[in-house]
Computed example of a mutant assay.
Amino acid sequence: KFGNDMKLNLCLIQPELRYWPCRKFEGHFLGVHGHYAYYNVGQIPFFSGMEDIIYRGDLYGGGITYGYHWVLGDRFSIEAVIGGGHARMEYDKYRCAGCGERMGHYKRNYFGPTRAGVSLIYFIR
């Protein structure tokens, strides 16, 4: 929780299964990922339309991932991934934190990028 009643609470889980066509943990790979999140965000002054509104709900879905894994040595490597898929959001919209006036229940679907990243990896042996 931030000052001035600003809320930014998020819990996200995004497991993934991967397939390497050649050697495991080297080179190109494909993956299938799922995701679930619970969020409670709102009263954020630097986002238009969120100054006086709180969104509380769940997000779930899945998608596919493409990535590349570079081995740098015996213990270090770098990995880059990008993925796309679907996310379903079901949430309640509230007018303010103090009054708790619910404005409605909403459902939205999203299709597009669902993950992107670059990771530095250290192998524990």
Score class of each variant (00 low, 15 high):
residue 118 V to N: 11
residue 33 H to R: 05
residue 95 R to M: 07
residue 3 G to M: 13
residue 91 Y to C: 07
residue 54 I to S: 01
residue 3 G to K: 14
residue 42 G to M: 08
residue 124 I to R: 09
residue 61 G to D: 01
residue 100 G to K: 00
residue 71 V to I: 15
residue 62 G to S: 03
residue 57 G to A: 11
residue 46 F to L: 10
residue 55 Y to Q: 00
residue 86 H to C: 02
residue 54 I to Q: 00
residue 119 S to Y: 12
residue 52 D to Q: 12
residue 11 C to W: 15
residue 90 E to V: 15
residue 67 G to T: 06
residue 86 H to F: 10
residue 107 K to A: 11
residue 16 E to M: 15
residue 1 K to H: 10
residue 76 F to R: 01
residue 70 W to A: 08
residue 55 Y to M: 01
residue 77 S to M: 13
residue 35 H to P: 11
residue 106 Y to D: 00
residue 52 D to Y: 13
residue 26 E to P: 05
residue 84 G to T: 09
residue 49 G to T: 15
residue 34 G to R: 06
residue 81 V to M: 03
residue 5 D to E: 00
residue 40 N to M: 15
residue 58 D to T: 14
residue 116 A to S: 07
residue 6 M to C: 04
residue 72 L to M: 04
residue 113 P to T: 15
residue 64 I to H: 06
residue 110 Y to S: 10
residue 29 F to P: 00
residue 121 I to H: 04
residue 96 C to V: 02
residue 40 N to K: 15
residue 17 L to E: 14
residue 91 Y to A: 09
residue 60 Y to T: 06
residue 18 R to Q: 11
residue 122 Y to M: 13
residue 97 A to S: 07
residue 116 A to E: 05
residue 81 V to E: 00
residue 105 H to L: 03
residue 1 K to G: 10
residue 105 H to R: 02
residue 89 M to R: 06
residue 19 Y to S: 06
residue 99 C to V: 11
residue 97 A to Q: 04
residue 5 D to V: 03
residue 59 L to D: 03
residue 52 D to R: 13
residue 19 Y to T: 08
residue 85 G to M: 08
residue 103 M to A: 03
residue 124 I to G: 05
residue 107 K to H: 11
residue 57 G to Y: 09
residue 111 F to I: 06
residue 102 R to P: 05
residue 111 F to T: 01
residue 114 T to H: 05
residue 118 V to T: 14
residue 1 K to V: 13
residue 107 K to N: 10
residue 94 Y to A: 02
residue 121 I to L: 09
residue 38 Y to P: 02
residue 49 G to K: 15
residue 20 W to F: 15
residue 26 E to T: 14
residue 67 G to Q: 01
residue 8 L to S: 01
residue 112 G to D: 06
residue 45 P to I: 10
residue 84 G to S: 09
residue 9 N to I: 12
residue 65 T to F: 09
residue 99 C to K: 07
residue 38 Y to W: 15
residue 54 I to Y: 05
residue 81 V to D: 01
residue 24 K to P: 03
